[in-house]
Design a protein around this nucleic acid. Structure first.
Length: 894
RNA sequence: GAGCACGUAGCUCAGGGGCAGAGCACUUGCUUGACGUGCAAGGGGUCGCAGGUUCAAUUCCUGCCGUGCUCACCA
């Protein structure tokens, strides 16, 4: 083995091994234990960013863990066609050739996107492999696959026939750049510096009389059809019922009363533009106002407006309108203001409310079940507080606009007859048949040109990927899926829609748990973005530190409910951890004599005290790790393993094992070797979901060593992934010996501390006295002398003997007095000051405990074990204090 | 405006009614035969502030201050 672990050499080879061994594949058995996950499908256009790395690492941990626990495991991978994003990308590509999509036409354009998808669409899945993610690649799906498209059509037709999908003419968020409708969720509100323009509208038939309104979008006045005032606003009551004359246009518009008008805001009179403002649209409906559309799909002025403005781009029109208002003396004043402006999240263009025909899903209706299933606990969010956010959104849910004026996506399965009659069907044949029945003759149908919102198809992902609407074996076996791992940014976009549609079409929740992880941020806590230039590319990290180091870092940082600040020093630290494991293995191999390893279980009666301690620590850790993973506490799970392996196994057990391995006692050596090997192998198995590559590689090398271990150690498996996940064994928990070792560790640390403070060179074999008045403690010290001598590198150690008469330094640890004679080295004053500090501390502790125990209420009301513990502390502190005082007394005599 | 989080060591963060923890950074020592991507020892905290509950509060409750996120409104 090399001196350092080299991930680059290992990872590709190991991944190929997993695939060629078919370890990624799911297999339906009659086992009752089933665990399934569907990947949140990344955009097919995308490349792996660090957020995907976190998301996939967590899923891979769960999948590997459950697989090792003998579950029927399925992880479905795949990608999303990402309507707008993909179409934009290919359009940009075309633009560089001086072409637009219209030059190609719909069919050719789609052909081109498919072509692109075939050549570059697999990039992100290839990158997932680098991370070590092992979904069932045979199950890979794409949202535009035929099967998934069939699911989309069926859902559309069914919802339509139930009235849950309908076509409606109302205002939508219109993206003039992309020239499509978008949903509320795709609109981003941004704070923007803008103006209030106060505009005076003259009152008809009364020179000098006027009403002033304020607006941030003056060009919309071209479409005004009323001015509204509050019914209780005395300032304007005289004007109600009269007409205002719209400046620049000349149209007479009524002054009406409507509760919407807020006397506190602006001038208290508000212009009403039902065609271009969501609130005004409602006012218009209530008051039966005309709706005047003044914009085309590009955001250029058109329609029933003065010719002067027709054809102007909307912001050009704004300028012109303001200028003319000013010239005409209608502009009363301009006020600076900060207000929020809606932008399209993809295009970055300012969105316009625009009156169009669009398809909607009645989300309010679907939200009822979707809310109650979470209330009932059929779906649990982790961390739980996301449920509040989910409920909040579901409570205020609006109709979901699902049609998009794009070409790339699932085309809406609706056809129109010559008179506009709508025929919704899963295919054209059916639509034609329906039409024939309706008209009594054959007619030509025109298909709706629009496609569906991308989230419509991804909302079906948990069951469409499993074969629905076919009644497949996978669907029956793996639905509902066990867990969904996702970021909070798509809870509404995606998670909520899956829940609504899963309940509707499968009659059951799509997943039982939703694990919501945080967002990865840079060292300063900023979002990572290309424009800020602070992105960490996971592939770069993998190349520099290895996939395991990246995965382990992400897991270790994944505390629930918190974003992750990812920094290189942390990744480096876990890279070092991988190297540590590598070198611990090297140590074991250096001492490995295959013939000495038993092919049966170790006889407990042969185990030494340290053996029993490390086995206990291992089993405690395994129990913790199991609980943590089941609770999605990956940070705690990974850190428990980290500390066990590094602190317990490497820093203590492995060092202690040397006394036995390099000693004369063959029987002891044999047992130690067995424990070393077994604890390592079990640790590796426990670690495998977190660090799959290095654990598999070491496992492989172990396999080459020709040692025979019992089946339960899993070494006979072809892959570590095929071995059992280690479970804690009660038979290997030794409380007494564990406490002994903890005591010894404390004493050793105490001795090392004395050496360090006295500046005794590490190689100098000094003498130490250990004193205790407790027989049991004395026995423990005597029984573990070899460890104390070796670990503290002592020349000799006298337990409970006569103290040497000369100068010495001392320390008390767990009631054991450590005395180290130092003859010439002693700085008396320093030593007294050091011990006095200890004395002050222990006196304070003692006082606190004494007053607690003197408190009647404490004795009466505190639980018994707490009181007992306090009494124990009292004794310990008293003892400690007494000893310190004695030592100080002796020192002052010297 | 509404909702949800978060304020703990220099930094990043765990924790949790009963003696405050980790990693990194820092200081000191170390060619100990697995590892300097290492070993050993150490310093460092009014647990945001103020009340309340409790025998006991850093932990639970209330308020305040500060930070972040989400949604809504903005004539």
């Amino acid at each position: 083995m090399e001196k350092s672990y080299d991930p680059a050499e290992v990872e590709g080879r190991i991944y190929d091994f997993w695939i060629s061994s078919g370890l990624h594949q799911s297999e339906i058995t009659d086992s009752a234990k089933v665990f399934s996950i569907v990947i949140p499908p990344p955009n097919v256009t995308g490349s792996l960013h660090i957020g995907h790395a976190l998301n996939s690492t967590i899923q891979d941990i769960l999948i590997r863990y459950k697989r090792m626990k003998d579950f029927d495991v399925l992880w479905v991978p795949g990608t999303d066609h990402a309507g707008i994003a993909t179409q934009m990308m290919v359009e940009k590509d075309l633009a560089s050739e001086g072409l637009t999509k219209n030059d190609l036409g719909r069919d050719k354009f789609l052909e081109r996107i498919w072509q692109w998808k075939e050549t570059s669409g697999s990039r992100i899945t290839e990158q997932l492999k680098r991370l070590g993610a092992l979904p069932d690649w045979e199950m890979e799906r794409f949202t535009l696959d035929e099967g998934l498209s069939e699911a989309v059509r069926k859902v559309f037709v069914d919802l339509y026939s139930q009235g849950l999908i309908y076509k409606d003419k109302r205002l939508v968020n219109w993206d003039p750049e992309l020239r499509t409708a978008i949903s509320d969720l795709e609109v981003e509100q941004r704070e923007t510096q803008g103006n209030y323009w106060h505009i005076r509208y003259p009152i008809e038939g009364d020179d000098g009389l006027s009403i002033t309104v304020a607006t941030t979008r003056p060009e919309t006045m071209l479409g005004d059809t009323a001015v509204a005032v509050h019914p209780n606003d005395p300032r304007y009551s005289a004007l109600v019922g009269r007409n205002a004359v719209l400046p620049l246009v000349g149209r007479k518009i009524p002054v009406i009363v409507d509760e919407y008008s807020d006397p506190e805001k602006g001038t208290g009179a508000v212009k009403i533009t039902p065609g271009h403002d969501f609130n005004d649209f409602e006012v218009g409906k209530r008051n039966d106002l005309d709706i005047i559309n003044i914009l085309d799909e590009r955001g250029y002025v058109e329609g029933d407006v003065p010719e002067k403005y027709s054809g102007l781009e909307r912001f050009e029109a704004r300028k012109a309108v303001i200028e003319d208002l000013e010239d005409g003396g209608f502009l009363v004043k301009v006020e600076q203001t900060v207000h929020t402006v809606p932008y399209g999240d993809r295009s970055g263009a300012i969105v316009e409310p625009w009156l169009t025909d669009q398809w909607y899903v009645n989300a309010v209706e679907l939200a009822v079940q979707a809310t109650s299933c979470v209330e009932r606990g059929d779906i649990r969010f982790h961390p739980k507080f996301w449920e509040s956010t989910y409920f909040e959104w579901m409570k205020n849910i609006e109709p979901w606009c699902i049609s998009r004026q794009l070409w790339w996506g699932h085309r809406i399965p609706a056809w129109y007859g010559p008179d506009g009659e709508i025929f919704v069907a899963t295919n054209e044949h059916e639509a034609i048949a329906c039409a024939e029945k309706h008209y009594g003759e054959e007619v030509t149908l025109v298909r709706d040109p629009d496609v569906l919102d991308t989230w419509f198809s991804s909302g079906l992902w948990p069951f469409s990927t499993l074969g629905w609407p076919q009644d497949t074996e996978e669907l029956g076996h793996y639905y509902p899926t066990s867990c969904l791992v996702t970021g909070f940014d798509i809870i509404f976009f995606w998670v909520a829609r899956m829940i609504m549609l899963g309940l509707k079409f499968m009659g059951d929740v799509p997943f039982k748990d939703v694990y919501v992880h945080g967002l990865i941020r840079d060292a300063k806590g900023r979002k990572m973005s290309k424009t800020t230039g602070n992105v960490i590319d996971p592939i770069d990290v993998i190349e520099k530190y290895g996939a395991d180091a990246l995965r382990f870092s992400l897991a270790a940082l994944a505390a629930q409910g918190r974003d992750i600040k990812l920094t290189f020093p942390v990744i480096e630290g876990y890279r070092n951890f991988m190297n540590k494991i590598w070198n611990a293995t090297r140590f074991v191999f250096m001492n490995l004599e295959p013939g000495l390893v038993y092919d049966s279980d170790v006889d407990n009666s042969h185990l030494s005290v340290p053996d029993r301690w490390i086995l206990t620590r291992l089993n405690v850790t395994l129990g913790e790790v199991e609980g943590f993973i089941e609770n999605y506490e990956f940070d705690k799970a990974s850190q428990a393993l980290y500390h066990f392996i590094w602190d317990d196994y490497c820093d203590w057990y492995l060092e202690i094992s040397k006394f036995s391995l390099y000693g004369e006692d063959d029987e002891s050596k044999k047992t130690t070797l067995n424990v070393l090997v077994r604890v390592l192998l079990r640790s590796l198995r426990a670690l495998h979901p977190f660090a799959p590559y290095i654990t598999e590689e070491i496992f492989r090398i172990f396999g080459e060593k020709g040692i025979n271990l019992p089946e339960s150690e899993g070494l006979s498996s072809k892959s570590i992934l095929d071995a059992q996940y280690p479970t804690p064994s009660g038979a290997e928990m030794f409380k007494d010996e564990s406490e002994q070792v903890e005591l010894i560790k404390g004493v050793v640390t105490g001795i090392r501390n004395l050496r360090a403070t006295m500046g005794v060179h590490p190689s100098e074999k000094v003498l130490v006295h250990l004193n205790s008045e407790n027989d049991e403690v004395e026995n423990i010290l005597r029984g573990n002398l070899e460890i104390i001598l070796g670990m503290a590198s002592l020349g000799d150690c006298i337990v409970c003997g006569e103290d040497s008469p000369g100068k010495a330094v001392s320390e008390i640890v767990s009631g054991v007095e450590i005395v180290m004679p130092v003859e010439n080295l002693l700085d008396l004053e320093k030593e007294i000051s050091r011990l006095s500090k200890d004395l002050a501390k222990v006196s304070q502790d003692l006082k606190k405990t004494e007053s607690k125990l003197a408190n009647r209420d404490f004795i009466d009301r505190a639980p018994e074990d707490v009181v007992e513990k306090e009494k124990g502390k009292l004794e310990e502190f008293q003892n400690h204090k007494k000893k310190l005082e004695e030592i100080l007394k002796k020192l002052s005599v010297v």
